[in-house]
Design a binder for these strands. Structure first.
Lengths: 366, 366
DNA sequence: ATCGCAAGTGTGTGCGCACACACCGGCAAT
DNA sequence: ATTGCCGGTGTGTGCGCACACACTTGCGAT
């Protein structure tokens, strides 16, 4: 019995979609041979290959990805190498993006596997890399915190022919498929502008840093600091930058250090951190009732958001971590499933958050 | 001959995907009956309906959208009612979002039809609405510029049972499926903060307005102005607001008006517009070399961007038009294809652009 | 008793593609 | 002459779903 099925109108008008059978008919071969050409599976005579290619070209064949995905049932695994985190921390937002991408990409049989490390401990990152060597996956999203360890690892990936994208900060020398993140250098300049705009050019500035169980700060923090200093240099800054090393978990110690600093330098009127821990400085300023210090930091995490709301933090500079996660995974998904190559460098917007606009800065808004 | 096909592992482990056949088997009916329940096609006994629904619920059945789209071949048409525009104007960015959504949704047989009106001419909007009455479509994205015309039209849509979403500014009284845009009121407050932050509280401020071939400004502009004034009132503003009516296409006239204004009010130190035409004021300030006036406006369109780069405009407040277009269409697509209901109010972030971060504010970054 | 009809149900086909497998011819090794 | 092998080719099945159509029952009308 012949059945019409829904109108596909293969007879009347012209606008029909071209399928593999059509190609096959045009080239005078079977669909399997066309399939071999499309997927470079070989085993096709030079003659047929040329003819099929010509037809493919001529009709500008576009495979139906829906059907392909249905039929192939092939699973693609995207590995994501990222820091561990607690709720409300920076990488939680990144994770939210991963989750959203996961939900969307699962339609195309793409799954995500997470590999987490301690962002303050280089050896934990190395352990993750070791694990990765034993695992199989089709692509990787790499957070580049430990740049000097990432670079050699990408060579292994190159050899294994596994595509990878970077997030957080870029390492342009690697053969990454793409980068998603802000220009850390320019994000430094933005912080400088926000801090310096209303400052006396001869006022001093505190630069809060966090001690790492390893080397001195991430690649990203270094770049931001460069951009920050560059801006000051170009804008007639005549004060002094006081770097202080603070601790994540020792408030008493931080207080002691800062008390001493402020005691010796009355002209401090600004403060900045290059990672997401400006809430530490904010907590101090708030506790000591020092309202005369402008404070600028990075990333909209819960604790920073609160301090901005309370007026202790002047401004936050943010980098859309959720978008980084989402697009990192989605770009690889598109590459694996459709062979669609993403733009290589994707510098995301540098967001500025003030008390007045922070409340709408949420993750569910792409 | 039985063929294994790629490993779908319906026997061994647990993680198999649940299909309609599985539901049917569990409920002791055929797939067609399950299909009738899923699509509310009726003709199912109360008994079976209850049982099938229970199974559906219990296993949390998620249809395979890929397969559905392949099989159904059903077309959904999303109408988009939006202003005409030239390249580089505000609505061009919105259009970019529409295009992106279109590309993505076309996989699910969703197509977009545009209906354009002249944003400065109310009668042209009414003509579009008249056209819409004759057309068939499955859902609408409505730009709410002419609020008082939109409201009665949504009643017609309600009667025709056609879902619609708003963009640009919200009209909470309508039965919209969703709204995508900023809180205009708060965006007004942000502009006030950016403008007023470094201003002498007793300085005067110019408010630039554009004459409309109709009533006085859009719903959005009115709301922004309210938020702006509210902020000033709460922050001890003691100057005067001078509203001036400018023209889109008559520079000489604008110059005359502004010359006169500045001649009479030497204490003007700030300027603002509540739509995207702050480049007009900027052009004047630049031509007259008046560097002592802080200028804040809305929307990152080409001409504003240039003025920000040159330092004539102090800051721009932006509202992610591209996201509005994208999500407007995508939310309706998801609703039509999957029956997934979006959040009702989606207040997008209010973006702040300065000379230092404008260069990364592009549309291709979601 | 027969028919018509409606409500309810099941069977089968195809969407466009990927891929397992069978197959065919020719040529070298036994 | 038989076997094996290999480059090259075609056939058939199923992915999960939507839907056209055939079918079954029960009941009232003729």
């Amino acid at each position: 019995m012949t059945m019409e099925h829904h109108t596909n109108d293969k007879s009347g008008t012209f606008a029909k979609t071209i399928r593999i059978v059509d190609i096959a008919r045009m080239a005078g071969v079977s669909t399997a041979t066309v399939d071999r050409v499309i997927h470079h599976r070989g085993k096709v005579s030079a003659e047929n290959l040329a003819r099929i290619r010509a037809v493919l070209e001529q009709v500008d064949y576009r495979p139906n990805l829906i059907a392909r995905s249905l039929a192939s049932g092939r699973e693609h695994v995207v590995a994501v190498v990222m820091p561990e985190f607690a709720a409300g921390e920076y990488w939680a937002d990144f994770e939210a993006g991963i989750l959203r991408a996961e939900a969307e990409a699962s339609r195309y049989n793409v799954t995500v596997r997470r590999f987490r490390f301690d962002q303050y401990d280089r050896t934990s990152f190395e352990r993750v890399l070791a694990t990765l060597r034993e695992e199989t996956f089709d692509a990787v999203v790499l957070a580049t915190l430990f740049a000097e360890r990432v670079i050699p690892f990408t060579q292994e990936l190159d050899e294994r022919n596994i595509p990878y994208v970077f997030v957080d900060s870029d390492l342009p020398t690697c053969h990454r498929l793409a980068y998603f993140g802000t220009s850390s250098f320019d994000a430094g300049a933005v912080a400088a502008r926000l801090l310096f705009e209303r400052l006396d050019p001869s006022a001093d500035i505190v630069v809060g840093k966090i001690l790492h169980r390893g080397e001195g700060g991430s690649n990203q923090c270094r770049e931001r600091e460069r951009g920050f200093c560059d801006y000051l240099a170009r804008h007639d800054f005549r004060g002094v930058l006081h770097a202080v090393e603070l601790r994540l978990d020792d408030e008493a110690c931080n207080t002691r250090i800062l008390d001493e600093l402020f005691a010796h330098h009355a002209s401090i009127a600004g403060a900045v951190t290059f990672n997401s821990t400006c809430y530490i400085l904010a907590g101090y300023l708030s506790a000591r009732r020092r309202s005369g210090v402008r404070l600028v930091g990075y990333d909209v995490i819960d604790r920073n958001r609160r301090m901005l709301d309370e007026g202790v933090v002047t401004a936050l500079v943010a980098q859309r971590p959720e978008v980084q996660g989402y697009r990192g995974v989605m770009s690889l998904s598109a590459w694996l499933v459709e062979g669609r190559r993403p733009a290589e460098v994707n510098n995301l917007p540098i967001d500025i958050l003030l008390k007045e606009n922070i409340s709408y800065y949420t993750n569910n808004n792409i």
